[in-house]
Simulated scan of single mutants.
Amino acid sequence: MTTFDVDVRKYNREAWDRQVAAGDRWTVPVGPEVIAAARRGEWSIVLTPTKPVPREWFGDLVGKQVLCLAGSGGQQAPVLAAAGARVTVLDNSPAQLGQDRRVAEREGLELRLVEGDMRDLSVFEDGSFDLIFHPCSNCFVDDVRPVWREAFRVLRPGGVLLSGFSNPVIFLFDPALQEQGVLTIKYKMPYSDFTSLTDEERRRYTDKGEPLCVAHSLQDQVGGQLDAGFVLAGFFEDRHVAGDQVSEYFDGFIATRAVKPAGR
């Protein structure tokens, strides 16, 4: 199987719909107490698995146009709306968008929900948003550079892009041995679940209905933002959830704050 044998977007849309049905941690909506706290100004959300994004990265959210890009699931978007932002969510998974709708209806929040491809934001005009919140999700598309170019286009001058993504190094290790607590390098870069795995290895994921991932290089993740025109203004690293073998040795996730310069 190669990326030419499968529709990456279609496969991962259906996979994330299945993750919602299975109750994956990134599909479980926040409770009423989280929304109540956000309305009081007490809130935090994540771009990466565990570390809250610094509040100063957001600036004043009240009345700001915010795009949650490939970030549905009933978690971040409702919190930002409760904090005073005017939030639009674009995501590939109808079921994930349904989780945001569920919270919005329960809490009386206004959310604009759009099903779409993170690489194609043509539904939005140039300069539509003040801030884009893009949590770890671009591993589910096979080319990340269009994501950065489109994000730059739809941001207003001075707008901010907050993004999370994985360090591609975490994809190098043999997952079967990793489950046994052994880290052995098996794969080469560039890595893709669609092209790097044998049919048998890939079946381990597809039989479980799990999404398939692509390990984008840091040249495409960080360099891609810079090439799109952004100025990097913030950076931190994060580890995976407790029990992850790789996280015992290094931080495998990255968050960036990038700014679209005034006059661009």
Rank of each mutant, 00 (worst) to 15 (best):
P94R: 14
E201S: 13
N12E: 09
R239M: 08
E105N: 05
L212W: 10
Q180M: 13
K208D: 09
R264N: 01
V147Y: 00
A215P: 04
T198W: 13
P261S: 06
V182E: 14
C136H: 02
S247Y: 02
N167K: 09
D126Y: 03
I185C: 03
R202W: 09
R86Q: 15
R257N: 05
P168K: 13
G234Q: 02
E107G: 13
E179I: 08
P54K: 03
G23C: 14
T198N: 13
M118C: 09
N12W: 11
Q75V: 05
S93L: 06
T2G: 14
G116A: 06
R156D: 00
M1R: 11
R153M: 06
V30N: 03
P261L: 13
V182Q: 08
L218R: 00
A15M: 08
G116W: 02
L109M: 08
V147H: 01
L97V: 12
P135A: 10
V89C: 14
V241T: 14
A21Y: 09
R202Y: 09
D207F: 02
L155K: 03
P135I: 03
L155N: 04
I35L: 08
G229N: 01
N138T: 14
K51Q: 09
A77V: 04
R119C: 06
L183M: 05
A83R: 02
E237Y: 03
G229C: 00
G59D: 10
L161P: 03
V87H: 09
E201I: 09
P211I: 10
F124E: 02
L218A: 01
I132L: 01
A21T: 13
V20E: 04
T256R: 04
L218F: 05
P168Q: 11
L212V: 04
V8M: 03
A85W: 14
E200Q: 13
T195R: 10
F140Y: 15
W148I: 01
K260N: 02
V182N: 03
Y187G: 07
F250W: 14
L80V: 08
F236W: 12
D174L: 09
D24N: 14
V53I: 11
V182A: 09
D120C: 07
T50S: 10
F194G: 07
F173E: 06
G223M: 01
Q225W: 02
V6D: 01
D100T: 09
D199K: 13
L111P: 03
S217Y: 04
P175S: 14
E107L: 04
L97W: 01
R102F: 15
L131R: 08
F165L: 04
V87P: 13
A262K: 15
V123Y: 07
Q180E: 15
R202S: 08
G71Q: 08
G127T: 07
V147T: 12
L47V: 01
T198S: 15
R9L: 15
E248I: 01
P54I: 11
L80C: 07
V89F: 13
K188S: 15
M1C: 11
S128G: 11
A22S: 15
V79F: 06
V246G: 01
